[in-house]
């Protein structure tokens, strides 16, 4: 771990319940300046929810989140806005404003928060679009571009104010292998070259191992494993091994029924589903 960098994010004993289901259950970790933390975990295990708590758009049931040394969970809207100017966020869905063009979406934070002239902003928009490989797409509406392109525009928008901290939720999902490599290279350039800190949620193991300086794996509401990419790769934990090698059989339960999903336990499949599975095995 990066011992000399200052701590940018401190998550302490974070608990979040939806109803009586604890999606995040006592999660603690720190992120230091200059690190690239990759958060992994099965679909629906709470990665996006964790990010939402780290950016202050959801309030935890209990626990603390500190950004840049300041506790944000109890902050008023006015105070948290100042903190938010220092980081960028790429949403899993892109979350582009549908009524604005691609260029206007990227220009939005610049128009709202800087005194730059129209020409300067146009220049920055061009440059950010070029960084994500979308030169010349300024004038299209989000409805007119593909899912992967939306992701990249979202990334360009998150980077518009040159933040010192970037959160990105599955930046490479929906991208082809070449574009994935381009986005990973971009993240690496920004973290290595511009000393940005990044927190990246990813399912994509190739990409995760390419960019991570540290990794966390979430499962049933808590942290299953954390460490450097090498530590994770060589982890003795069978859940981690199953996840990074993408094997269908292993200790991670298939969340096939609502009930299992609810308490995140390794519950046996319900009889009906069990019968169906056997049926398939007998008659392939």
């Amino acid at each position: 771990m990066n011992a000399n960098g200052e701590t940018l994010i401190e998550v302490g004993h974070l608990v979040r319940r939806f109803g009586d289901r604890a999606v995040l259950d006592d999660i603690s970790f720190n992120v230091h300046r200059g690190e690239t933390l990759v958060i992994m975990g099965g679909s629906g295990c709470g990665k996006s929810t964790l990010l939402r708590h780290m950016i202050g758009s959801m309030k935890p049931t209990s626990g603390t989140v500190k950004l840049f040394g300041k506790e944000i969970t109890a902050m008023k809207e006015r105070e948290i806005e100042r903190v938010r100017l220092r980081f960028g966020m790429l949403f899993q869905s892109g979350a582009l404003l549908a009524s604005l063009t691609v260029g206007e979406n990227i220009a939005l934070p610049l128009l709202q928060h800087t005194d730059k002239s129209g020409d300067e902003i146009e220049e920055i928009v061009k440059q950010k679009l070029q960084m994500v490989g979308l030169t010349g797409f300024e004038d299209l509406k989000p409805g007119e571009i593909s899912g992967g392109m939306k992701k990249r525009v979202g990334l360009a928008r998150a980077l518009a104010l040159d933040p010192e901290l970037l959160f990105s939720d599955e930046p490479t999902s929906g991208l082809d292998p070449i574009m994935t490599a381009v986005v990973d290279q971009l993240t690496l350039n920004l973290t290595k070259g511009s000393h940005m800190t990044a927190v990246v949620v990813s399912h994509d193991m190739t990409s995760a191992f390419r960019i991570a300086t540290r990794m966390i794996m979430l499962g049933h509401g808590s942290i299953v494993a954390q460490g450097t990419p090498d530590e994770i790769r060589n982890s003795p934990n069978p859940e981690v091994q199953q996840f990074i090698h993408g094997q269908p059989d292993g200790p991670i339960p298939l969340n096939v029924s609502q009930e299992e999903h609810k308490d995140h336990q390794h519950v046996r499949p319900r009889p009906f589903l069990g019968a169906r599975f056997r049926f398939h095995h007998k008659h392939p």
Binding site: E77, E81, R84, F91, L97, L108, P109, Q112
Partner: peptide, 21 residues
């Protein structure tokens, strides 16, 4: 309907995260 659609497609949340009220 317009603001509601923006709400469900996370656009409102994105605005807040960009420190735009």
């Amino acid at each position: 309907a317009e603001l509601g659609t923006m709400k469900v497609s996370e656009e409102i949340e994105a605005l807040e995260v960009m420190a735009i009220n």
